[in-house]
Nucleic acid binder design. Structure first.
Lengths: 197, 197, 197, 197
DNA sequence: GATGAATGAGTGTTCATTCAT
DNA sequence: GATGAATGAACACTCATTCAT
C-alpha cells in the first residue's frame, strides 16, 4: 500500500515539518518552564527548539496557549506512565513508583501555581484536566494493588492525589520521597479507614 | 532590644527623614510583593512609597536586598505577634491564633518560593532566619500551653513549624484554617508521641 | 482590443486558474489598499483573495508591482467607464458623470501620493499612464459635448484633468461634488478662454 | 539678583536637560515625519534627537501625542512668522510671503492627512487649532494690506486659508508658487467680491 | 503553479538602573 | 540625601519574504 492510503486515512495529514515544530516547541518549553519559570523569555524557548519566533506564535498565539499545551502534554505523559509501570512492576511497587512520578510532576509545575491563581480564564480548565486524567490512572493502580490484598481497598483516589500534591508542593525532594514511601506503607498496613479524610 | 538602643546612641544617628524613607519603602514593597509578586516593577514600589527611584537604590542596591529586608521585617512582625497574643489570650488560644498568623505569613510569601530556590546566595540565609525567630516564639507558646496541661509536652517546635508551613503552602485558606485547628486539637488531646516526626 | 486576441491565440495561453489568481489578487488588493492604505499587511490581501502568500509573490515579486498593477487596472476601468457613459447619457451629462467618477478615483488613490513622491522609480511611470489613458477619454467626451454646442470648444483636456485631480485631493466629497458641478457649469456657459491656464 | 529669583518667578522651573530633550525630540520628529511619514520608526526619531527611547515615551506616551505636539509646534512657528514678515516687508509682500510659507507648511503635513481622517479622536482638535492660529495671522496681514489700499478689503480670511491649503495639497511646488502669486494678484486687482466663495 | 509554514529582522514598548540636578 | 529624567538593554510580537511540500 502506498503513502496515499495512509494520508487518506488520517484526513488532512499533518505535515511532518509542522509536527516537528510542535514537538520541538513543547519539549523546549517544558524544559525552559521548569528551569526559568513560565515567564521565561520567548526567545529562550525558540532558540532551544531551533525554530523562529513566528513559528511559536503561529501555533501558540497566546503565551497561555503554550503553557496549557505543555501542561496537558505532561499530564498525559504522566498518566500514560501509569500503564507502563503497571506492566513492569508488581502492583504496590507500580503504585509507589507512579506516586513518586506524580510528585515530580507537581514539583516541576510549581511555577504554574501563581499563574493558575491569577484568575486568568485560560488556566481555569487545568485543575479539572489534572483530575480527569489522574483519577483513572491512580484508581487503576489502587485496584490492582487492592486485588492482590497488598493494600487496603477503601482508599479514595482523589484524596491520595491531593495528599501527594500537597507533599510535593513542599519542594523538598528527600522529604517528598520519604513521605510518599511512608504513605504507601500506610496504605499497605493501615486499618480499613486510615486513609480517608 | 538593647542593640537598637546602642545603635541609636552611638554610631551615626539615623536621620528622621531617612527612617521615613526606609519605613515607607518596606511598607510599600510588602504590599506590592503580596499583590504583584517579587518581580513587580520597581516604579510601583517607589510610587506607593512616595520616594524617588534613587532613594530605593541608595538603601537597597540590589533587589534581593529589598526582598530580604521585607522578609526579615515581616518575620519580625510575626514573631513579635507571638508575645502580644500570649498576653491577650489563654495559652492554647494564643497558640492557635499564632499558628493561623504564621500560616498567613507563609501563604503571603509564596511568591518567594521560586526566588528562594533559584540558588541565589542572597536568599540563603532566609530559612535560617525564619527558624531562628520562630522557634523561640513557638517554643514559648508551647511551653505555656503545656504548663497548664492543656496540650501534651513533647511537641517538637521545629516539626510544628514545618507542618504549618506545608499546610499553608497548599494555598487554600479554608483548608489551612481547618487543618490547623485540627492540628491544635491533636496537640490538645493526642497521645505523648503523636506530634513527633 | 486586437492585442488581447493576439495574446490569447499565441504565446503561452494563460491557464484559467492563473487568471483566477490574478483577478482575485487585483480585486483584493484594490479593496485593501482603499481601506488600509498601500502599506497594509500582505496577509490581509492574500486572505481576501483566497490564495497563498507564495502566489502573490510569484505574480508580483515586488510590492510596487502589485501597486502599479492595481493602479493601471483601475485607471483602465475608469477610462473604460468613459465610453460606457458616453453611450448611456447626453454628452454633457456623460462628461459630468465621468468627471465625478474620476474624482472618486483620485480620492481613492490618495494613499498612493506618498509612495509616488518617494522617488521610487517603480512609480515613475504612473503619472504618464494616468494621462495616457485619461486624455483620450476626456478628449472624446469634450468633443462630443462641444459638437452639440453645449460647451465651449476650447477646453484643454489636460487642464481639466489636473483641475479635477486638485479638487478631489481636497478629500471632501461634498466639496468635490459641488465644485465639479460648478466647473462643468463654467464650461457650459463660460467665454471662449475661461478654461485655459 | 540671584538665580533663585528667576526660579521663583517661573514657578516650577523646567530643568534645562528636560527642555533640551523636548526640543530635540520635536525637532527630530518634525524632520523624520517630513521625510518618512508619521509612521516612521520611533528609533529613527530618538537616534536623530540623541535621546533614549524611554525619554520619548516619558514625554509622549502615545505616538499621537508626539504627532500633535509637532503639529502644534509648527503651526505656532508658522503663525509667528506672520508677525516677523509683517515687520520686515511691505504689507502685500508680507502677505504673499506668508501664504507661500503656509503652503510649505501644508505640503509638509501631507503625511498627516491619512492620520487625520482615521477618526482617531487624538487628532480631532488639530483642524480647529490650525484655524484658531492662522485666522488671526492672516486677518492681520490682510487688514494691513487693505489699509494701504493695495488689496481689496472684502476678502474672507477663512476662504483664503482654505484655498491655499487646497493649492498646496496638489504637491507641486512650482504650481503652488505660481498659483499663489496669481491669487495675490487677484486680491490686488480684483473687484470687491472676487475672492469670496 | 499553489500553498502556507517557517524564518528572522524590525519595531514598539517597558523597566531596571544610573546620574545630573 | 532625595529626586526623577534619561538611558538602553531586553522583550513581545508582527509581518515581508522564502521555500519545502
Amino acid at each position: 500500500m502506498s503513502d496515499s492510503t495512509t494520508e487518506a486515512s488520517t484526513a488532512r495529514r499533518v505535515r511532518p515539518d509542522v509536527q516537528r515544530s510542535l514537538d520541538a516547541l513543547l519539549a523546549a518549553a517544558s524544559e525552559v518552564f521548569a528551569t526559568d519559570g513560565v515567564d521565561a523569555p520567548v526567545r529562550r524557548i525558540t532558540a532551544k527548539a531551533g525554530v523562529g519566533a513566528g513559528t511559536l506564535y503561529r501555533h501558540f498565539p497566546q503565551r497561555s496557549d503554550l503553557i496549557t499545551a505543555v501542561f496537558r502534554h505532561e499530564v498525559d505523559a504522566c498518566a500514560e506512565a501509569a500503564s507502563a509501570l503497571a506492566e513492569q512492576h508488581e502492583p504496590v511497587e507500580a503504585l509507589e513508583r507512579w506516586l513518586q512520578r506524580l510528585a515530580r510532576f507537581v514539583a516541576d509545575k510549581r511555577g504554574l501555581k501563581t499563574a493558575m491563581h491569577s484568575g486568568d480564564p485560560a488556566f481555569e480548565s487545568l485543575p479539572a484536566y489534572f483530575m480527569e486524567r489522574f483519577v483513572p490512572a491512580v484508581t487503576h493502580l489502587l485496584e490492582s494493588a487492592a486485588a492482590t490484598g497488598d493494600i487496603r481497598a477503601d482508599v479514595v483516589p482523589y484524596d491520595l492525589l491531593r495528599a501527594v500534591s500537597g507533599i510535593a508542593a513542599a519542594d523538598d525532594d528527600a522529604y517528598t520521597r520519604r513521605t510518599i514511601s511512608l504513605l504507601v506503607d500506610g496504605l499497605r498496613y493501615g486499618g480499613p479507614s486510615a486513609a480517608s479524610d
